[in-house]
Amino acid sequence: MATSSLLLLLADGRFPAGAHAHSNGLEAAVAAGRVTDLASLEAFLAGRLATAGLVGAAFAAAAHRAVTSAGSAVRGSTLALLDAELDARTAAPALRTVSRRQGRALLRAGRAIWPEASFDDLPATSGGAHQPLVLGLLCAAAGLSRAETATVAVHGTVTGAASAAVRLLGLDPYQVQALLVGLAGRCDGTAAEAARAADDPPERLPAAAAPLADIHAEAHATWEVRLFAS
């Protein structure tokens, strides 16, 4: 019972971690003229799910696994390795910066809400730990399962971009919501795959790449005026 409410709270875009400030790559794709309508938004979301969505959820699940099943002695070193492995999957410096910035915002919320949780196991990387790692620890602190953790991560990937699409393209919110409903099964499948992958050694975690995500992110980072931080 309690777990269900906690799952909803953590997956909610209103959770105070600044998720609403990010379009998850959509703003740059819109500016490049690649996402213009509902159909291209659906293709965008399908690609995000299979790439950044899967990778982020797998790392959130792996971080959750590290703090719930590993001994306290190896927690820190496992999380440091996960952080370096996620760096190696994030070729674009702009995306590394964004992930660490989102990690810091999430960590602020986490420390305030669960002061007794072991966030100090996170690596002291300059810029802060990557967002999926912080999310994994936050979900563990809330008592969510590994599968629920992956679900929260995947949910954030698609809903962030979808709500940005309503603002950027003026799409009908009902139709965008219907699109998300249609993608729900695929989101669950991606989350299940990510949760399974978390048992693999860190170097074998998913590494699905998206050339345009890297290219768009670096272009977006040079803009002087933008609606979203990423």
Binding site: L45, G47, R48, A91, A207, A208
Partner: peptide
């Protein structure tokens, strides 16, 4: 001994969204 690059690019019918605006456009 440190991870430098991990990337897995998938195209074709086995890779959802690969031709779309998030991956290859």
């Amino acid at each position: 001994g440190r991870p430098l690059l991990r990337q897995s690019l998938a195209v074709g019918p086995g890779a959802p969204g690969w031709a779309g605006p998030a991956v290859l456009g």
